[in-house]
Amino acid sequence: MVTGFRRTLSLPLAKSASVPALRRFRGEKRQSLRSTSLPGRSHPTVSHLLDQIRSAPGDSSSSGVDAIDRLLAAVDDLLRLPQAREALCRRPAWADRLLDAFLRLADAHGSFRSAVLCLSDRRAEAQAAIRRADPARLASAARSLRRTEKEVSQVAAAIKDLARSAPLSPGQWADAAEAEITGVLTDAVAATASASVGVFMAIAAAAAAESASLSKDSWKVWPTKKAAKAKETAPSAAAEGLEEGSGRVFRSLVNIRVSLLNILTPSL
């Protein structure tokens, strides 16, 4: 049995939001499904995950990272359902593709988290160079920010294909319950990838803008000591929130992979 991070989830249902529609299986809009396994309306856990998918952000920032974490927490809840475990066990080939998709997302967010930590250091370096009127150090900070922008852009490009749900399609379903479970998990992967790409590109754009704003004469327009401290505090607080949020998302993805491996690996 594989073990990993443990978490206790108690999330309120999110309000449905208007977001760009995700590509559905075979280009068709998924309809409400009924079965003896999931009687009447969808199981509340499935409905909660659907709400999180609809609420997934199309853009960026620490609030976007928080939304991704809520979406992944709902995925983790769904994987605890017997219906989900049965669907995954009946579809080992599809489950392997799902496992691979979450591995790629975990790798991407692990790289993103490292880049975010480096970004904070590079911002601090730029601010120190400006305060000390050190053009060589400032030029080095600008180059570092440009490297961060390229690194994060590459991470975003690596998972863009996961924003399309079709590659994970399991084909023919055994019943409506299986169709609903596999469908919502596939859409969750697409929503997570799409929202992640939005967050990554926003941070890459911010790094590029900061690099472009630096020049050898930047310290000449640096504000008074009091104003400078306020100017530095706001980005610092935002960076801390992003660092914390990216860490939570990475751990959530690891938890999901652990859950999938536990489902697919027979207990000894």
Score class of each variant (00 low, 15 high):
V2H: 14
V2D: 06
F5G: 08
T8H: 08
L9T: 08
S10I: 03
P12T: 07
P12E: 15
L13H: 06
A14M: 02
P20I: 03
F25A: 06
K29A: 15
T36A: 10
S37G: 07
P39G: 13
G40I: 09
R41W: 11
P44D: 07
T45I: 08
S47A: 03
L50T: 00
D51C: 05
D51P: 01
Q52S: 10
I53V: 13
P57V: 14
D59Y: 14
S61Q: 07
S63E: 09
S63T: 06
G64L: 02
V65W: 10
D66H: 06
D66A: 15
D66Y: 07
A73M: 12
A74F: 01
D77V: 03
D77Q: 14
L78T: 15
L78R: 04
P82V: 07
A87C: 07
P92H: 00
D100V: 03
L103Y: 10
A106V: 01
H109K: 00
F112T: 05
A115C: 13
V116K: 12
L117E: 10
L119A: 14
D121H: 12
D121W: 03
R122H: 15
A124N: 15
A126K: 11
A129V: 11
I130M: 14
R131S: 09
R131K: 14
D134H: 09
S140E: 13
E151W: 07
Q154V: 00
A156N: 02
I159M: 03
R164P: 01
P167H: 10
P167D: 01
L168W: 04
L168S: 02
S169V: 02
D175V: 04
A177S: 12
A179P: 00
G183T: 02
A188Y: 02
A190S: 14
A191V: 10
S194K: 12
A195W: 08
G198L: 02
V199D: 05
M201C: 07
I203M: 07
A208D: 08
E210G: 08
D217P: 01
K225C: 03
K231N: 12
P235I: 00
A239Q: 15
G241H: 06
E244S: 08
G245P: 11
R248I: 14
V249P: 02
R251M: 08
S252V: 00
R257H: 02
I263H: 10
I263F: 11
P266G: 11
